[in-house]
Nucleic acid binder design. Structure first.
Lengths: 213, 213
DNA sequence: GGAGGCGTGGAACGTGTGTTCTGAATCGGT
DNA sequence: ACCGATTCAGAACACACGTTCCACGCCTCC
């Protein structure tokens, strides 16, 4: 009576999820055993190790109930971890990771935001802002902006744009003016400047800001 | 060397919160013991029972790590519901509920913020800001500010203050100047004004801001 | 058929962990 | 100063729990 390899593991995973939802603390090995009608604790341990190897959970050894879901957005709550992938400033280059599939585990810094801040948007990442060029848009030096990957924005939107000729990335409002594009700071003491539309590629659209406290 | 009754319990509560944030599972009694530098497990148990009696946590007996936060926002997962208790603006009165024991269930509107925004502070409430008098502090019309109840603030802090003679509440930076107090807007086009220190009572200290998207 | 890998059963071991008990220290009010 | 209530210290107990070990059935491949 063999079951497919992942079926039992999937069942364990679901049990952990519902248990977590119900109790707000993770189940013990023996909770899983009785909850999934498994005959032995060693079988549970065996499958938990497999799940950990697959990266679906994380465990702390020798600690009871030390099971953490890492698969579907951590815990079901209203909070989301967003990776801070770098710093953005006028006049400085910024290397962005590949747009798709940013792995939160590869980024050592993350910010926690509520789901309503990203409103269901996918692949949101975050950038630390350097400088006060967007101060009038209430974005200060040191703030963290949430960005949604895209390659085009509507007129007047705030976006992170890459300028090929000068190899730099900057954060401005973007206005199309024929074949040229106007990059407008939100700072009364700064002047807008214009670049060729072909020289510019949009990296991401502004979604929200998190104040650095 | 006696500490105030709730100080140790507050510390335990904060520790549980941060532990939960870091590990995604609740701490054991001995985790709390070492984390809060408490000498005995029985003391932890004693205070946990007190916290449970006050309704701030929930526990399952005979089960390890079965501590659930119920006080501020249910789950410890990083998101907290903060009640929006009113609107604050220069020149308009505002009725604040009793400082202590604001019941989130009595307020129909709440904002969801991450726990790191309130950093373990207790009794945080929120106010919707009307007007642009604090625009230079990056607080705009329509934004929601998080406030911590207090009756005194350090010089230069932003606070919600009530002026008895004019029966109004306003949100400004507060500077003591002898027997008078200077209320300083954060808007270059506005002038500060002064009130008698006796006429002023501090309602809450600025903790953070949530942008209205 | 034999070897090896994989999933399973059952049991035992060591320790992590909640609980409880006994006293002492501290606090608050009369 | 006295006394009850509260809080704290330290130890011990009982068991919940993660871990490990060994044996067995099942499958695949040579």
């Amino acid at each position: 009576m063999k079951k497919s390899r992942s079926e039992k593991q999937q069942r364990i995973l679901d049990f952990i999820r519902t248990f977590l939802e119900k109790h707000d603390y993770p189940p013990s090995i023996r909770d899983i055993q009785s909850g999934c009608e498994i005959s032995s604790t060693s079988v549970v341990d065996y499958n938990l190790k497999a799940l950990e190897a697959r990266g679906l959970i994380r465990r702390d050894r020798e600690v009871s109930r030390a099971i953490q879901l890492v698969g579907t957005g951590g815990r079901g709550g209203g909070a989301v971890e967003v990776p801070v992938v770098g710093t953005i400033a006028a006049g400085e280059p910024l290397a962005l990771p590949s747009q798709e599939g940013i792995d939160p585990r590869q980024v050592d810094e993350t910010v926690t935001v509520t789901q309503e801040m990203i409103r269901g948007r996918d692949q949101v990442f975050a950038l630390r802002v350097r400088g006060t060029s967007m101060i009038d848009a209430l974005i200060n030096d040191g703030d963290i902006v949430l960005m949604e990957p895209t390659d085009s924005v509507a007129d007047g939107e705030m976006a992170a744009v890459y300028l090929g000729s000068s190899n730099e990335t900057t954060f401005k409002r973007v206005y199309r003016e024929g074949k040229r594009v106007r990059l407008q700071p939100e700072n009364a003491t700064m002047q807008p400047f214009h670049v060729d539309a072909d020289d510019l590629s949009v990296q991401g659209r502004f979604v929200g800001v998190v104040r650095a406290l």
